[in-house]
Design a protein around this nucleic acid. Structure first.
Lengths: 241, 241
DNA sequence: CGACAAATTTAGCCATGCCTAAAAGTATAT
DNA sequence: ATATACTTTTAGGCATGGCTAAATTTGTCG
């Protein structure tokens, strides 16, 4: 039986759904659940179901949807999601580098504008920036063809004690956390070593060349991803996401 | 009796209506008619009526609407319309100056983005450009407080023969006309004199320092506004629009 | 004035995308 | 195997902003 209403056109909402599905289904292409999507998008699960039905009914379709078993992106859907992600991260880099935004200011404006970036604007921004590899938080920018460098990132809170690491990216969702990280010198490329594990939900870490270690709240640590220090040079290898 | 549906929120559509009303009601604050708005916005007159009723029912309201007698902007509406216009023209200047757009390319992207420019982005763009006075087509950019320089512009086709004039602005709606003007050196600031009036819907004009006059099609001439050559220096006087 | 043409408004409908409440399916633990 | 908890879908509704067709108003010309 067809969905109650007719097919949706390609709208901002659709972009948001695709981006959320990309983020919630792991790299291999697992399914994303309605509930997870609802939480991520700030809408009710029932609304998600409705939208997924409509998206799946499109032809060509962006998603493969199986009732009660979640949703996956089709190649076309993955491509579109990566395009929107590229817009977002290019915009963040652009606002930061060309318009003097601090790294805690870029997310909201990029989120709003990402849906309205023409191919032309995308190309001009990328050219102006010299085809940047990452956004200001260290996240890789998908290429125009959809290639996205895969990095063996691990959350700082899961990193082994005593092993040298380098910050590869930080979460861009919490501006106040970003300001705090900025103050502490916690940014992509900086060396970091965990001195002691969780104690009262904090981590004892040594940052860069500093001698005295620092206590990091779980809130901050949860927003930091690292890679092994010696693999830093490999972070530009590209694979299909 | 209240309108059939409830009040509209502040949406892109509303911005488009306000901008259209601003453009269609002359500087003194004349009323704009439903038909003219419909034509300008590319929707049916009935849709315009519906939206005007909803806009007028808002409090505080952006418009003053009298059934069968058109609509006017309230001060708040004028302010909002000028803000959107400022976004549009700043964006055009920005795309042109910072991202290498040609002047026939800027309009469409600016039109799409103008609704999503935060105060922060507006300010950063203006600062980056050094608070520009005009967009690439010569149209004045409203200031943040809503001030807009008034210029005694006249359409080239209405300008008296033999009187020296300076191009003050050109219409940005027709990309192919803009490319043609570019080729002919017809841009803001260039001196122009009408040698002979309409003949087969063309104008004979002398451009800049060139010796041989040129035949301009009515289509091009209709997109060119001029001011008296000696008033050129006064074009930055500000008044409340 | 009266009639016609043009402009405008009303009435009723459609599509999108969200919502709540209730029904149905899935998964887990005894 | 079945009861229960949780997830997901269905059903029905609301708001926005379009549309067409039909009514109504305005304005102009004899």
């Amino acid at each position: 039986m067809p969905p109650r209403t007719h097919l949706p056109v390609n709208t901002e909402s659709v972009d948001d759904y695709l981006k959320a599905i990309l983020e919630l289904s792991g790299p291999p292409g697992e399914r994303a659940t309605s509930n997870a999507l609802a939480g991520h998008l700030g809408v009710r699960a029932a609304s998600v179901t409705g939208m997924l039905q409509k998206l799946a009914a499109q032809k060509p379709s962006y998603v493969k949807y199986e009732k009660h078993h979640g949703v996956r992106l089709t190649p076309a859907g993955k491509m579109r999601a990566l395009e929107v992600l590229r817009h977002h991260r290019l915009l963040e880099r652009f606002l930061h580098d060309c318009l003097g935004y601090s790294w805690d200011e870029v997310h909201d404006d990029a989120e709003r504008l990402e849906h309205f970036i023409s191919e032309r604007l995308e190309d001009r921004i990328a050219a102006k920036l010299g085809d940047p590899q990452t956004d200001p938080h260290g996240h890789p920018i998908p290429e125009r063809n959809g290639a996205l460098p895969a990095r063996p990132e691990v959350l700082l809170s899961k990193w082994a004690c005593g092993v040298k690491a380098v910050i590869s990216s930080v979460s861009d969702r919490d501006p106040s956390a970003l300001r705090e990280m900025e103050r502490l010198g916690l940014k992509p490329g900086v060396a970091i070593t965990v001195e002691a594990g969780t104690r009262n939900a904090t981590l004892l870490v040594r940052i860069g060349e500093r001698t005295e270690p620092l206590r990091l709240s779980q809130r901050l640590a949860a927003g930091i991803s690292v890679i092994a220090a010696n693999r830093r040079s490999r972070q530009h290898r590209k694979i299909d996401y």
